[in-house]
């Protein structure tokens, strides 16, 4: 795990340092005195060898000093925390929506494999996968926000202030993301279940006289949870990419929105911080899924 984090940091640092654009000029403006610019560069340590810059950055992160954002002219740390909370709300909500819909739909499709229910189910899921997230977003805005006015179409409210309102703001973006996610998870669930349902122990369970519902939803599903959870974990990565677009569409100021602003404005310290944090969170989520796996499947031992 530590090795991966280390590699993540290296990759982040390398990629972002190829960014064109002069950091000093960004801070002081393009019309500034060249000498003043040179001084600033010196004091920011931009003329030091890359290794030193890297070392300073890592050391800073470890001690809690994440530097200042050029764009917002504030320390990065607190900004990250706030925006992370916002995105966490969306990510969790959309994953919940997706799983709640996908698992039953996937099992249903697998049971009725190759019959009309399966075709219906897979058509729905293909549709979900094919429409881009932001397209769903646009549709949902048009429908629920403009036409029906049930949900707001932009803005963010912190859960601590007003939980219900925060949920309202988070709902449409989460639904848009969740629908796309659900499609993929449905197909995974269906594929896993068809594999499971063809195994011998399903036949043995029927031969004991168990009701078909028990056979599928207890015996069968219990075996599918593990693989589906793993895929869901992997999809977290995809989700964190999608929030960049979705949050911009909904003006929802979370991590995605923050990253996008950073990239657009060449705010290097912020870019480094956001990219690193996102990658680290994705890695940690997958690690968590790995650690929890023995709960789903007793065959796997914790190492």
């Amino acid at each position: 795990m530590a090795v991966t984090l280390f590699l993540i940091s290296i990759i982040t640092f390398t990629v972002t340092n190829i960014l064109p654009g002069d950091v000093a000029m960004m801070i002081m403006g393009t019309q500034s005195n060249p000498a003043a610019l040179a001084n600033l560069r010196e004091s920011l340590g931009l003329n030091d060898p890359l290794i030193y810059q890297y070392g300073r950055w890592i050391f800073g992160m470890l001690t809690g000093d994440w530097g200042n954002s050029l764009l917002f002219k504030q320390p990065i740390g607190p900004i990250l925390l706030q925006k992370m909370t916002a995105s966490a709300l969306i990510v969790l909500l959309s994953m919940t929506i997706a799983l709640t819909l996908a698992i039953p739909l996937g099992v249903w499709s697998a049971v009725y494999k190759n019959r009309w229910q399966d075709t219906a189910g897979s058509s729905v899921s293909i549709l979900g996968v094919s429409l881009p997230d932001f397209f769903w977003g646009i549709m949902l805005i048009l429908l629920f926000a403009r036409a029906l006015g049930w949900f707001p179409s932009s803005g963010f409210v912190h859960p601590n202030e007003d939980f219900l309102l925060a949920l309202k703001h988070a709902f449409l973006p989460s639904l848009a993301l969740g629908l796309g996610l659900m499609a993929h998870l449905t197909r995974m669930t269906r594929a896993t279940m068809t594999g499971i349902l063809s195994q011998e122990f399903i036949r043995v369970a029927r031969a004991k006289g168990l009701a078909e519902k028990t056979v599928i939803w207890q015996y069968g599903l219990a075996n599918a949870i593990g693989p589906v959870m793993t895929v869901a974990g992997l999809q977290m990565g995809y989700l964190f990419g999608s929030i960049i677009v979705m949050e911009s569409l909904f003006n929802y100021t979370g991590m995605g929105w923050l990253t996008y602003q950073a990239l657009l404005n060449r705010d290097m310290p912020l870019i480094q911080a956001t990219v690193f944090v996102i990658a680290a969170v994705v890695m940690l989520v997958n690690l968590l899924v790995d650690l929890l796996y023995p709960i789903f499947d007793p065959r796997i031992e914790l190492k």
């Binding site: 011998e200 004991k208 075996n223």
Partner: peptide
């Protein structure tokens, strides 16, 4: 099934549900 007629199959390695305990599989019938 499982009551007046019992059946055993060929593959012992896959005849048992991997995620349920032996006790559960013996007793649910």
């Amino acid at each position: 099934r499982g009551n007046e007629i019992g059946m055993i199959f060929q593959e012992p390695m896959t005849s048992l549900n991997p995620v349920f305990s032996i006790e559960r599989q013996l007793t649910d019938g």
